[in-house]
Write a protein that binds this DNA or RNA. Sequence first.
DNA 1: CCTGTATTGACTGATACGGTTAATGAGGAG
DNA 2: CTCCTCATTAACCGTATCAGTCAATACAGG
Lengths: 204, 204
Amino acid sequence: MNDKFFNLPLEKQQRIINAAYKMFSQNSYKKASMSEIACEGGISKALLFHYFINKKELYLYLWENAIEMTRKEVREYKTLETNDFFEMLKRSLLSKCSLMRDFPHMYAFSLRAYYETDSEIESAIQENFSDVSKASEIIVFEKMDTTGLRKDIDLKIMYDEIFYAIDGYMLKKYRSGLIIPDEIEGEIISLIDFWKKVYMQKEA
Amino acid sequence: MNDKFFNLPLEKQQRIINAAYKMFSQNSYKKASMSEIACEGGISKALLFHYFINKKELYLYLWENAIEMTRKEVREYKTLETNDFFEMLKRSLLSKCSLMRDFPHMYAFSLRAYYETDSEIESAIQENFSDVSKASEIIVFEKMDTTGLRKDIDLKIMYDEIFYAIDGYMLKKYRSGLIIPDEIEGEIISLIDFWKKVYMQKEA
DNA sequence: CCTGTATTGACTGATACGGTTAATGAGGAG
DNA sequence: CTCCTCATTAACCGTATCAGTCAATACAGG
């Protein structure tokens, strides 16, 4: 790719790659078109090809960027630097929100890219994106401090159930088209409070 | 459309419309192609055009069919003929599983169709698909018997949270590509048991 | 054999694709 | 003003694919 891309104002860079994330998340690799991406990003197709030499390269850049950004957010929010389960949860979700603020379609893109079967792409997507979340899932599950949690429930199911709910919630927000990060942050926090109340042991 | 379609063996009918649900759920109306649908359904494009006179008609048939099938399953599982919250939940989810068994991609199609903006389609999708679920949601919430449930939690959040989790769970299953209805039914039932334990009042 | 129907391969004109290229425009330096 | 640079684009190219058609086949039952 052309390094001059990085000399663009950050806002313009993000506008372009968000356009690409959007188009590639809504259609398969083959059917998403460079013209549409350029149009959505507010530049000409020729300029898009000036920055990314071809479609494949753009796609792979998006993939690498998604991995990098995700790792960066996890690091910045210090997700794993606590033992308290609900605190971990909160940090991990707030980092998710922050990512969504900058790259609203990135998560949908990643999910789709992970299952992309186009021969031009498939082989290059070797790095396991879900490793990022799966690895931290295992770490969280092993590290988490279970004192204070109810003893009568299966913690693995609790853990899964919470993450299913988050995914379902995010999906609904994403599908509705209107992503308002501040609103989402608020609702996430009240969900966490709800879980705290539900899963913490009653002191009687 | 050509009524002879309904003279086909049921298995073949379903194979064809499932192919269409699949392609239309993976790509936008414009980008999903009739050739691919025909190929996925194991028939020739010409035959597909013999049964459905054009792309738009096929799409609208799928939409009507989705609404009709959803209503039918809700009715058959007698989802609303009980007051017990967890029983309602169970019936509603088992009906969802049953639908998924027959039309694995229908739900994804409906979500996408609901937000489809193609001018050729948009206006024809007037009937609010989410009405089906939203209406029953309100009914469930008003009808449900709350005795036995914990008094210290917000039931509306509990309700939402449960449905977020279901959506997240279903999404994960769907994305993984391997939908094994029996397995899903089992996991759904154990999730419901989990919720029962968590949300039912402890008799001390 | 015949007749009617299910099914398709081969076709069409139109469109949209990925990618290229030559030209335009803006801005700074002399 | 000219000259140079570099971001940006309109117009273009060969090709692939699209929705939709149609004449020809395969195949049934009699």
